[in-house]
Amino acid sequence: MREFLRPPGVLSEKDFKSRCISCGQCVGVCNYACIAMTPDSLFGLDTPKVFHRESPCFLCMKCSEICPTDALRDVPMEQSGMGVAVMDIKKCVDYQEENMIMCWTCYERCPMKGAAITLESGYIPTITDKCVGCGVCEYVCPIHAISTTPTRKLPPAAKTGAIPSKTTDSTNVAPSAISGTVPEEGAK
């Protein structure tokens, strides 16, 4: 099955499935047409899913407001609990030493701009522990350097808040700090 996230406000997969009655109101109210309904199992009811690689969620939170049975709890966007995005800094162009490209697309499009993704030192995109896993950054990243793991697939520790570093391999440092040199002026 295609990788999917649940819409914001899901407490746990078990709790969600016991409450979701397939009324489709979340789909109807979504401003971004990002919620799809597909069966969870062969004869299961259709439940809402966000296939974020095709159409991510921008955290308008209208779905969690309208859900009649609290399958999607009415929470503020900071508590959406959809998953966690992780950036591979071996791929992200801002972390490369040579032929560096400046790209802030993930930061620009993050619905929690400046909170879930920040620009370290003003220019290096970094995912923080406030990330709720909406999938937008993965969707817009032109290099596909970001991957979002849904909450239901996270190890238990992650769900309680002890999430490992959101940028793999290294913490958020400037490239030259990695190499230890201060940049020099060019041709002249």
Binding site: C23, Q25, V27, V29, K62, P68
Partner: peptide, 16 residues
Amino acid sequence: NNYDMRALTGNMVAFN
């Protein structure tokens, strides 16, 4: 809903 009018949503399981 497709035309961004969302005052009415849902089906005969639950609607608003």
